[in-house]
Design a protein around this nucleic acid. Structure first.
Lengths: 245, 245
DNA sequence: CCTGATTATTTGTAATATAAATAGGATTAT
DNA sequence: ATAATCCTATTTATATTACAAATAATCAGG
């Protein structure tokens, strides 16, 4: 697994420490503990603990030096685009600021991905988009939760772009979408998935209409972004923590 | 250090293995070695070697299971947006495909970053952009290498956007820009830094003209991207490996 | 007060032992 | 013969201990 699930002790510690770090649990008055103390705290051997710390170091969260200890890196050094890091941040410390910033990324990227998908995606990739749309419509009719198919739709578009960096973003988009859409639900009440808006995108991509796909996607995400800004300025309570999956 | 420089044994092994992995050194006929063999190969203890492997696992390059061994993840799982991973890829295995894909990312992101910078950047951040432009002009006059100031300019714009994800991208943009601009040099002959094009961007940002900044940036990157495509279809030799910094 | 040696602390590296997981082969029952 | 089960070998996971290296803090001597 690429993700840090709870399969073994090391990954459990990575998860626990990662969450604690991005939640701001460590600071000047509560510095990051030394190895020995963390071993005691988690009941783990030095080997395991050091491996966990090294994984967090690889994600830009920590840094270490002999005698100086191990410390939390400044936030600018964190690999925000690492799926684990972004997930920890969004699940434990969701903020309108972060949602807005990620919304801006989506607004920059997804319309271009849709345009590329329209222009160059192979038949199967386009089919995956159509399938996600169909499931979304189905969920809408049955008044099921549209979230999974909504997410699947956006990921399918990113993947269909054929751009590896965009595909890569699907990993982090998944977390962000989950939080964003939950916010929309709470703000607008029971969610009616905007099937027609998504259908416009899908139709344009299937028809090979790059411009149309780009504009339709931009409109959709612009709306989501505006909702975030509106909820923020209206002072709607910050999006709540989410249960771990 | 967030980057894997050669400070200690673990990081040297991370670097060596990371490069080997992204270069495709391991495959079905040459599977990733078991711990014991890697220890011998690098003359390191199991602790050090395991910590290095864990760091590469955190970057999505490796995965491991008891009895099954450690193996290289499929390329889709690699954290392409990890600065180390992208640097290894671009330095060791630069391809037009990857440069084009990263160019598409820049084309999506940088114009929006410039627009944001024009709209919201504080005075110091704008000043940093102006300074980079000035150094670029200076280098141009003195026929010095314009590369460092060119890079500094783009990073300053990304940072001035105030969007943490865009700032984050500056880490990976640095590697990609270095390769891209080298390519332009070889293709167009001695490079004359396009100071006027960058000045347009800087002026618009300083004037708070978001649309102007966006369009000027788009034009600049579009040109760079077209050059990559042109060099590719003209069959110009693939960009060469770069010495390690 | 400064300078340089000393010490103490923390991470870095090494070596070894045992546990857990599991692919693949051997065994047994039907 | 086939299927289910057990066994075994291999590889990573975890634990423990020891020592090395780096360096901040302390102390001694001028």
């Amino acid at each position: 697994m690429a993700r840090s699930d709870g399969q073994n002790l090391t990954y459990r510690i990575v998860q626990a420490l990662g969450v604690a770090i991005v939640s701001g649990a460590y600071s000047a008055k509560n510095p990051f503990p030394i190895e020995a103390d963390l071993c005691k705290q988690y009941g783990a051997s030095r080997s395991v603990l050091r491996e966990a710390v090294k994984m967090l170091t690889a994600k830009g969260l920590l840094s270490a030096r002999p005698r100086q200890g191990t410390w939390v890196q400044p936030e600018e050094a964190w690999n925000l685009l690492d799926p684990d890091v972004l997930r920890w941040l969004l699940e434990r410390k969701p903020s309108y600021a972060l949602l807005r910033e990620f919304g801006q990324v989506r607004l920059a990227v997804e319309p271009k991905a849709a345009a590329l998908a329209a222009a160059v995606a192979p038949r199967e990739a386009k089919a995956a988009i159509a399938t996600a749309l169909e499931q979304m419509a189905q969920a809408d009719r049955d008044e099921d939760d549209p979230l999974p198919s909504d997410i699947a739709f956006h990921l399918a578009v990113l993947r269909a772009s054929g751009n590896r960096f965009y595909s890569q973003l699907s990993g982090v988009t998944e977390s962000a979408l989950r939080i964003s859409i939950r916010l929309q639900n709470r703000y607008k009440g029971v969610r009616r998935a905007s099937v027609p808006d998504h259908k416009k995108i899908s139709d344009a991509i299937l028809a090979g209409d790059a411009d149309g796909a780009e504009q339709a996607t931009r409109a959709l995400i612009q709306e989501a972004l505006e909702l975030i800004n509106k909820a923020d300025s209206d002072g709607v309570s910050e999006p709540r923590k989410v249960r771990r999956s």
